[in-house]
Amino acid sequence: MNSREKILSAVIANQPELVPLPELSSFERNASGCSDKFVAMLKSVGGFFYYVSSYDEIINILLSVNGENKKIISTVTELTAYYSEEFLNNPQISNIHDIDVAVLKGRFGVAENGAIWLTDQEMRQRALPFICQHLAVILNADSIIPTMHEAYELISKVTYDFATFIAGPSKTADIEQSLVIGAHGPRSMTVFVMINDQ
């Protein structure tokens, strides 16, 4: 008997009598006040936040915060200055290891924890939102939902090979519980909430 059969037969011999799954529908919440809550939670997890109404506005903010001569890469076609199909098609590590700022679109934001859902379609390269020194995410104002329960309702309607929730910059408190921003991933996370998507 191989290990698979051994484990499965031990499981079936030892598992208790079947008990049903609980009903989760009572957890769904209404969406009022979501945006304000999202902003507050995003800030509490160390994120920066801007309401914007155009892509030009995003570019201006990125330039004023990061200065010139930075390697800014975007997977958002509207940001033509930072979008390069050729670049995004090259999966070599040497291509992406020195990115200063990556700008991606997020699918939706979760008000209760400030997390944003991104799939590999928005990332193009899975490592992109992790390896960049600074991360910027663009979100539509109407794509903020109350809790993780609504999040998984939405997630059930999309397909992905890899996806993640990102809530703020990479951080650690492993040294004497002192919070340090910028552990291995981005040193900052900036969220642009687009009020009037062009």
Binding site: M41, F162, S170
Partner: peptide, 12 residues
């Protein structure tokens, strides 16, 4: 914390 910074879903 309300959630970890990263909650990554590996499918393929």
């Amino acid at each position: 914390q309300p959630i970890t910074t990263y909650s990554s879903h590996f499918k393929k």
